[in-house]
Design a protein around this nucleic acid. Structure first.
Lengths: 334, 334
DNA sequence: CTGTTAGCGCCTTCAT
DNA sequence: ATGAAGGCGCTAACAG
């Protein structure tokens, strides 16, 4: 443990006032180029590290942001995190990684904590808070970017990054129909899921657009992982053995569907066509390679951070919501 | 944006001194139970959030730690991050997520920044700094846990969490030999990689332990991803078509090897036995299911954080290095 | 049990 | 171009 050097130490060493050191360190003017260089030189030699804590107290800006995700081990969010961290880094911000595990209490506690740490901004992904509570909590922050969630009415200082999951689901359905599928099911993920609702909506709309009946029995909910998909698919096929197309809530669920099919002797895509969502890394690596509705997650993250920076630095209002269109990535499963 | 409430505001409202509020908020004694409750009640109603920045300046503790990883989108590190974040959360710490992309300059800049943010501790994963530089930099931090890296001589306040990759590699080789493989190759990842070196070491030792010659031509380096593995495997098989077993630097590389084999018409495991490393999520999902040397990554993360907490809270010395033994997870590929 | 007095290390404003 | 005073919001040490 090296002894900590303060600005006063550097000032004493350089034979100038504390203020002059501050000006040199923060690259402000009102100081001659030579003294600045001399001070920087001395500060460097002494191993001086300006305290962001003290600076934060004085300026009320911390150069930190909060990133809240349900689960960092979920590749969907880890790629978003990558985008956020990278553009935050480029702009001199550090990011607090916070994980909720879809637990509302934990999400609340994390927001409290981020507030106490006085983050300059917040990127909140897939919040599970209900609308009223969410609006109330976000009002406590200076600037917020919501990923995968949008407020009913727009609020100053809050911008959303959205994925057009409705259209994505419609595209998937359209693809199934163009392939001649007769009985299309949706393994729909958790009932409460915000994006699940939108995907279900698109699924129904897509069906109706092609004058198909929407059979509620062909929509089954499940946990948003492989096991959930596996179990749900087994149940689904037990009731409706003639389902010949499955749209999955996400790729993990789709993998579960693949396993169920394998177990039931159903071939993909010959007997059952399958489309997942999110285009996680394994989608292209698994057999059969998974067709999926995908967007560039890292880009979502960097767009989110860019939007946040814009909010934070702009005096006036923030940008309008950003909507990303997923693309149907056709591989072997459909 | 809600107006910020300070302790002084709460004190005024409650008709007590600032200090009394502080005692109530921090649950210290020297205050009657009833005044405490009254103050907490008032603080809650006013929406008071104590400033961790101000507190940090006063106490010189920030309740934050730095987590430095090469790439958060790499499941190996995202699972470690999960473990770290989760046990940090349980103990009231927030974590700064920092990503180096194996760039030494970026790693240095990040360490500078974490120092300036006055983190109470650091979890540094797979550092790319050379020994001398690393020792110098870590001395600036109060407490450090090194994951997947160890210092030549132990330093006060620095503990390592290690994976016994040498033994893991030996086990893989032993398994190949027990299966009757004749010509075993190692697709070894980046030349500079610290764990790559240890795996190579174990690979050689394993071979010698079974009185096999170690042919340098059967060790090929590559980028630590699927493409690297793919390219390296193609080159390897072009030169040595009779290789019948491949140990891969990690599972991503192994996936590349699978693709190369598929392209060359080699069956796995019949023509080529394959063992990967790390047991990433897709290992069990890909076809053929990948045999791999795996440890519990989330556990590494939580052990790392626990060790850091122990260091931070203990007056005396830290625990000795923790070494985790990977287990050979036998699936279809070997 | 409660209040008062000093800082923590830096930045802002005003003077020189 | 430089310096001096005051304060950011909180806690520590000491009084009472």
């Amino acid at each position: 443990m090296v002894k900590k050097i303060r600005m006063a130490d550097v000032a004493a060493e350089a034979g100038v006032s504390l203020q002059t050191v501050s000006r040199a360190i923060n690259d402000k003017d009102g100081i001659s180029a030579e003294t600045r260089e001399r001070i920087l030189e001395i500060a460097g030699q002494m191993g001086f590290r300006p305290s962001n804590i003290a600076r934060g107290l004085a300026t009320q800006r911390t150069a930190t942001i909060g990133l809240v995700v349900p689960d960092i081990a979920n590749p969907f969010f880890s790629e978003i995190a990558r985008g956020v961290e990278d553009t935050a880094y480029e702009n001199g911000y550090r990011v607090f990684l916070c994980t909720t595990y879809e637990d509302v209490d934990r999400e609340q506690a994390l927001l409290d904590s981020l507030l106490e740490h006085q983050v300059d901004g917040l990127v909140l992904c897939s919040s599970r808070l209900d609308e009223g509570e969410l609006v109330k909590r976000l009002a406590e922050f200076d600037d917020v970017v919501l990923v995968n969630r949008k407020l009913a009415e727009s609020v100053e200082g809050i911008v959303s990054i959205l994925i057009d999951e409705q259209t994505a689901a419609m595209q998937a359905v359209a693809h199934f129909i163009s392939c001649g599928c007769q009985k299309i099911a949706f393994v729909a993920g958790p009932q409460r899921s915000y994006s699940g609702k939108r995907r279900l909506d698109g699924f129904r709309t897509g069906l109706r657009a092609h004058e198909q009946v929407v059979d509620p029995a062909l929509v089954v909910h499940c946990e948003p992982d492989q096991r959930g998909g596996y179990t749900a698919a087994l149940n689904l096929f037990a009731e409706h053995g003639d389902v010949d197309a499955v749209y999955a809530y996400n790729d993990l669920v789709a993998v579960g569907v693949i396993q169920a099919c394998r177990e039931l002797g159903k071939r993909i895509p010959e007997d059952v066509a399958l489309i997942g969502a999110d285009d996680i890394p394994l989608a292209s690596l698994i057999t059969p390679a998974l067709s999926t509705m995908g967007v560039d997650k890292e880009k979502i993250g960097s767009l989110a951070m860019q939007a946040l920076l814009a909010c934070m630095h702009a005096e006036d209002e923030c940008a309008s919501p950003v909507v990303l269109e997923p693309a149907l990535i056709l591989r072997a499963s459909a």
